[in-house]
Amino acid sequence: LKKGSQVEALFSYEATQPEDLEFQEGDIILVLSKVNEEWLEGECKGKVGIFPKVFVEDC
């Protein structure tokens, strides 16, 4: 996944840490960066945070 690409949430993700990005199933997320193999940083609904890659798929 490249910076600036968009992904769609397959499942809702509930934030458990302040840096987490919370979203609902079906939301479109703009990928800002790759944190590591399992986590991405993205923006959704004006909020920025990190989230697990397994919760999303390429649009």
Rank of each mutant, 00 (worst) to 15 (best):
G26I: 01
E37A: 07
I29L: 06
E8F: 15
Q6F: 15
L32T: 14
F23C: 10
E14M: 06
Q24C: 10
E19R: 09
I50L: 10
L40K: 00
W39D: 04
K2W: 11
S12H: 06
C59S: 12
V7C: 00
E41Y: 15
K2M: 04
P18H: 05
E43R: 05
K3D: 07
S33P: 05
K53L: 02
E57A: 14
E8C: 15
G26K: 12
E57L: 05
A9N: 05
C44S: 02
L30A: 09
C44K: 04
G4E: 01
K53Y: 02
I29D: 07
I29P: 14
L30H: 15
E38H: 08
Q6Y: 15
Q24K: 13
T16K: 15
K2S: 08
V31F: 08
E25D: 01
E57K: 14
Q24M: 08
L32N: 14
L10N: 10
K2L: 06
L10E: 03
G26D: 03
E57C: 11
L21P: 05
L40D: 05
V35L: 11
L30T: 15
L30G: 10
Q24H: 12
E19W: 10
C59F: 12
Q24R: 09
G49D: 06
Q6E: 10
G42I: 06
D20I: 07
F11N: 13
F11A: 15
C44Y: 06
G26N: 05
E38M: 09
G49K: 12
L10A: 11
G26A: 06
C59Y: 10
E38T: 05
E41S: 09
E22P: 10
I50E: 04
K3E: 12
D58Q: 11
W39Y: 08
G42P: 07
P52T: 08
D20E: 15
F23D: 05
N36I: 04
K45H: 14
L40C: 04
K3G: 02
I29E: 07
E41D: 12
V35R: 09
S12I: 12
E37K: 00
S5K: 14
K34F: 06
F55L: 14
A9D: 00
N36D: 06
E25P: 01
E38C: 02
L21Q: 04
V7Y: 14
Y13N: 06
V56T: 06
L10Y: 08
E14W: 10
I50Y: 10
T16I: 00
K53A: 09
G26T: 01
S33Y: 05
I28L: 09
F51N: 04
C44G: 07
I50Q: 03
S12V: 01
E57F: 04
G46K: 02
I28C: 05
V7D: 00
L30S: 15
F11E: 04
F51G: 07
L32W: 01
F51S: 08
Q6T: 14
K53R: 14
L10G: 04
L32P: 11
F55D: 07
G49E: 03
F51Q: 00
G49A: 04
K45C: 10
G26C: 05
F11H: 06
E14G: 09
W39T: 02
P52W: 00
I28F: 06
F51M: 12
E37N: 14
E37H: 08
E38I: 11
V56A: 02
L21H: 06
K47H: 03
K3F: 11
L1M: 13
D20T: 04
D27M: 07
S33E: 01
Q24V: 09
I50V: 09
T16V: 08
G46E: 10
V35C: 06
Q24G: 01
